[in-house]
Write a protein that binds this DNA or RNA. Structure first.
Lengths: 283, 283
DNA sequence: TGAAAAGTTGTAAAATTACTACATTTGATG
DNA sequence: CATCAAATGTAGTAATTTTACAACTTTTCA
């Protein structure tokens, strides 16, 4: 829907000249909406009809219509576009690109968040006797973070990085236990196996993973976030951030469900940290 | 600023015909932005120049400019605001509030990011013989994540959760080594001590922490992010996300600095993971 | 009340802007 | 290197917007 997004994504489909137009617009969209087609053509070093064709390729009626869409995109509170980092970007460029594309991904995640499933997940977590968080590779740090959050709730929480320990822990799980498995792709073999073991023991298996993945199929409940991952860098970035926000949401839902008294308990946990600090405030 | 509001407020200042135009626009703004000046004039029962005068009275350059402003007003969804979660928020509310306030915080972080310091940090990291990432509590998972990223670069990376191990590791550090210490508050005693030990050994100490904190004072380089933390929940949320993005930025800067061949190496690391997966793509 | 002045509105022509048809160029393929 | 398809630009056309000015309405004050 957002036309700026569309421009970045469609990049491959553009012709050489059209790409020039795209670059000029992305470089300074604010200028673009105040330019006539002739001005924009000159700025891009192409002819006017090329600009016009560019607009039509993006499914707009023509140049004026395109400008309206662009104006809306800019006003939309989301000037964040998934611009990929390029080889000769300087620190200024890649810093902003990473911020912006992360935020663009979060915006997508926000819109695709399934409230009903989240609510169901919070239900299950509040009723759990014991909660385990397992992930491998980049997702291990997400599980680690979940441990840190849920640990404060004074519920039995388990976290292991070691797949043997994860496995053994699941062997000992049973009804009333919740196992949360985190994997962006949902294709990590050992996690899928763990899911099977836990389910075999009647534990509730919750997956923070992509839907329709092998892992998702083994779960009782799947929390999926449609995050367009930037694979250029061969490192998970946005997906992991979205997973963490999901953890925040689950943790928040958990505390709200537990009520007011429980939150005082949280405060107490935090106050206890003071001894290890030079001053107040939380870490 | 919002032109729709302006129309309703300015109502008194309009002439009789101009008010007709205003009414037609307010009745159906979506139609207005897709109409030509002639169509809108006919709908309002006035002449074209009247519509043009109407536009100018609202401080726009003319009809097309007015349409742009109108389009923006209509598109103007909620910009990200740091709305705190409240006690009787339902899943819908708290989910969106958490997304939005995280994004609001990231926006602040983005603007406060100090490019020069980031660049300097990348410099130091690329020249490091050995890189250590240490954090405690919530920041431990950030350090964990950093380990995961930098490990792929085939550089010696160290990560410990245990403060004794952290301490011992710093005792063995020396010139050319970089120690990255992560703490939102920068007041965790044992981290400050570690910083002192590392500096005593001529290692470079880098802090991902808030400026002017005790930890910041012990660092050679401070990467600070001005993130307004939501302390209501007694849990670090946005600060940690910002720290992770900073890790992404440093990692990206690192790979860019190392050049093209190096990135192929990254791809190889990723491809190696395939054996443990049911299919392709990274986790 | 009525005449001048100020303000408002519409008509028609000018200027700007965008679009279309067609010609030329570019690039790929056998 | 000949041929075809795709891409791009030129020039003319159509559309849209804006301007200039004339007609009309309302207000003001003798």
């Amino acid at each position: 829907m957002n036309i700026l997004e569309k421009i970045t994504q469609h990049n491959a489909v553009f012709s050489k000249s059209e790409r020039k137009v795209a670059e000029v617009i992305l470089a300074n969209p604010q200028t673009a909406i105040h330019s006539s087609i002739a001005t924009l053509a000159k700025m891009s070093g192409v002819s006017e009809p090329t600009v016009n064709r560019f607009c039509r390729r993006l499914d707009t009626k023509g140049y004026p219509d395109f400008k309206l869409h662009l104006a809306q995109s800019l006003a939309n509170g989301t000037p964040y576009v998934n611009r990929h980092v390029e080889e000769n970007d300087g620190p200024e460029e890649y810093t902003h690109k990473i911020f912006e594309s992360t935020m663009a991904s979060l915006e997508v995640a926000r819109q695709s968040a399934d409230i009903a499933t989240i609510n169901r997940a919070v239900d299950l977590l509040t009723q759990a006797q014991k909660i385990s968080f397992f992930g491998l590779g980049a997702s291990a740090s997400v599980a680690h973070d979940a441990l840190n959050k849920f640990f404060r709730f004074n519920v039995p929480v388990i976290y292991f990085e070691d797949i043997i320990m994860q496995r053994m822990s699941c062997m000992n799980s049973g009804e009333g236990d919740v196992v949360v498995l985190i994997s962006h792709t949902g294709r990590t073999k050992s996690l899928v196996e763990i899911a099977q073991i836990a389910r075999g023991n009647d534990a509730t298996v919750m997956g923070i993973t992509s839907k329709d993945s092998p892992l998702a199929q083994e779960c009782n409940l799947v929390l999926s976030l449609e995050v367009p991952e930037d694979t250029d860098m061969y490192m998970p970035m946005a997906s992991r951030i979205a997973q963490l926000i999901l953890i925040d949401i689950l943790a928040t839902g958990f505390t709200l469900r537990r009520g007011n008294k429980f939150r005082e308990n949280l405060k107490r946990v935090k106050d206890t940290l003071r001894g290890s600090r030079f001053d107040k405030r939380g870490d």
